[in-house]
């Protein structure tokens, strides 16, 4: 127990947070401006947005370098490690809730909005008076205003992607075991493989999107089916991208000889994140593709 109350390391002043704040501001103003001037081709917002992202990356690199240095020079205690871990866990919980909002939208449209437009519950007149020809089915291939599209089946690319992601979770776990058992070779090899699988997933997803847009006429604005499809898979894809970047950083740190079996919070955090992304995909696969 006494171990738990070592001196807690309180970092000295740091310029990174304010740099990060400015970066976020640039991103937000840039994105806002970009979106507003989309009809005219984007305006200056896009550049501001990219500049903001660049500053953000600069900040992250600097900030993490400080943290890594501190960690490597042994300033942190087990207690600090716990703080990091708990912080990461709560962050992932917040991400879960972010996805929950979109899953909520999916369930609501499927189970309430569309049936009601079709006259269910207390909405008989909605269908009779406003949308007499509308038929409530899911996937919603013909919207009430008559836009049509095609549904993405779960066979083929989505199924391959599911298999890829599930395997990648396993490979990452093997890498992690390698780290814990001081088997460096196992660690590097399986971590590298995981990264490749991540990239493979992303490539296939891009292919899927191209197929959807070019051949199926399934687009972001194809009624709620397209809306939920692209926002859910799209945000998931962004998270996979982020996760892959994290794993790549871990890969280089592993090559540099960072991490010990006892002390590898960053690796663990990335791995949690990867597993979380995997679980989200499984939900997606079931609710967006299969059912």
């Amino acid at each position: 127990m006494s171990q738990q109350y070592q001196r807690y390391y309180v970092p000295a002043q740091s310029p990174w947070p304010i740099v990060g704040a400015v970066a976020l501001f640039m991103i937000a103003v840039g994105a806002g401006n970009y979106v507003i001037s989309l009809p005219e081709g984007g305006g200056y917002g896009g550049y501001l947005l990219l500049a903001g992202v660049a500053v953000l990356i600069y900040m992250l690199v600097g900030w993490f370098r400080n943290v890594i240095d501190e960690s490597m020079s042994g300033m942190y205690s087990g207690q600090m490690d716990r703080s990091f871990k708990q912080g990461m866990a709560w962050f992932i919980f917040s991400e879960v809730m972010f996805f929950a909002a979109f899953f909520g939208a999916l369930f609501y449209t499927r189970m309430i909005a569309i049936p009601w437009l079709g006259g269910a519950s207390n909405n008989l007149m909605t269908n009779e008076v406003l949308w007499p020809t509308f038929e409530a089915v899911w996937p919603l291939l013909t919207t009430p205003d008559g836009t049509t599209t095609e549904a993405m089946g779960w066979q083929g690319l989505p199924l391959y992607n599911t298999i890829i992601l599930v395997i990648s979770s396993v490979t990452l776990h093997i890498a992690h075991t390698g780290l814990e058992q001081e088997k460096r070779k196992q660690l590097t090899a399986w971590l590298g493989l995981t990264i490749l699988l991540g990239i493979g997933f992303l490539t296939l997803q891009v292919e899927e999107y191209i197929h959807a847009y070019r051949e199926m006429g399934l687009m972001l604005n194809s009624g709620v089916y397209g809306n939920t499809f692209f926002l859910l898979t799209g945000f998931h894809g962004l998270h996979v991208t982020l996760g892959t970047v994290m794993l790549i950083v871990m890969f280089f740190r592993v090559l540099k000889g960072h991490f010990t079996p006892q002390n590898h919070f960053a690796f663990q955090a990335s791995s949690w994140y990867w597993h979380f992304v995997d679980v989200v995909w499984l939900c997606l696969f079931v609710f967006v593709y299969v059912l």
Partner: peptide
């Protein structure tokens, strides 16, 4: 409430 696209009774 009068909601666009739906009918409340």
């Amino acid at each position: 409430d009068a909601n666009p696209g739906f009918i409340n009774e």
